[in-house]
């Protein structure tokens, strides 16, 4: 069953075509990597799928809901974590969990259960009452991810979630992503760390607003006869005409 379906999805800003008629599908529980250079249109595409931007044309369904008319239902069924840090620094770890849990409609006992679960998984038991501002970036990102799936969404959108984080934490972060995927949560992730692309079940590569290649990492490497995803990406990115920003 497809949890994300897009058909000829397009977004124009005036004369500029940010996303140019892309079509793809993502299966339930899949880790789908969304690659592309800066300015290729990744974020715009992701925003349309999250219900933050209305597409100019084309069709898309997320978690079975239409992006044009059912953005409120979509929001209830997705999690989102952006490259910008998005927890409240002046609230404690516990308060952030409680706030976002509450906002997604979790009951008080559910919040409590999820809170102790998150603290266990992250090994932050003693930090429940420390302000999020005082945590190191790696922990903030992991906490951010845990909170973005606090309501067990069908899909979680991750917009360059590991930006600025050291390799060890990135590895840990990906373990959390695998774990979420095993629990049946579809993961839609953009990244420019190409080693991370290898962890995905399938990836698509966007160039100038279009999807130029899509498939599992091993398929793509075979197709472009490269040893690493980095090579695949370089071959495709070389064809870009648009300047990155």
């Amino acid at each position: 069953m497809m949890t994300i379906e897009a058909e000829n999805l397009t977004k124009r800003f005036g004369d500029f075509i940010a996303v140019d008629s892309i079509s793809f599908g993502v299966e339930r529980g899949e880790i789908f990597g969304f690659l592309g250079a800066n300015g290729a249109g990744k974020s715009t595409a992701m925003r349309m799928l999250c219900g933050l931007l209305t597409p100019t044309s084309g069709r898309a369904k997320v978690a079975g809901f239409d992006v044009y008319t059912q953005s409120e239902q979509i929001k209830r069924n997705i999690g989102y974590m952006s490259q910008k840090f998005s927890l409240y620094g002046d609230l404690t770890v516990g308060e952030n969990i409680k706030f976002w849990g509450g906002l997604y409609g979790l009951s008080y006992s559910e919040i409590r259960a999820r809170k102790s679960e998150i603290m266990d998984v992250l090994g932050m038991g003693s930090l429940e009452n420390s302000f999020v501002n005082s945590l190191p970036l790696g922990w903030k990102q992991k906490l951010s991810f845990s909170i973005s799936i606090i309501h067990n969404p069908q899909i979680v959108f991750l917009d360059e979630p590991t930006g600025g984080v050291d390799p060890l934490v990135r590895r840990k972060f990906w373990e959390m992503i695998f774990d979420a995927s095993r629990r049946g949560i579809t993961v839609f992730v953009t990244t420019h760390y190409l080693d991370e692309a290898e962890y995905c079940d399938r990836v698509s590569v966007m160039v100038d607003g279009k999807i130029r290649a899509m498939g599992s990492p091993s398929e793509l490497k075979r197709k472009f006869s490269q040893e690493k995803m980095e090579g695949v990406f370089k071959v495709l990115a070389r064809t870009a005409k648009r300047k990155s920003d």
Binding site: C50, G51, L52, E72, K75, R76, I78, Y80, M81, S82, K84, F85, S86, L87, Y88, G89, W100, L103, Y104, G105, F157
Partner: peptide
């Protein structure tokens, strides 16, 4: 400015 607005925007609140 904090960047939390985006997170709020994808949350299911009117």
């Amino acid at each position: 400015e904090l960047g939390t607005m985006e997170q709020m925007n994808v949350a299911p609140i009117s």
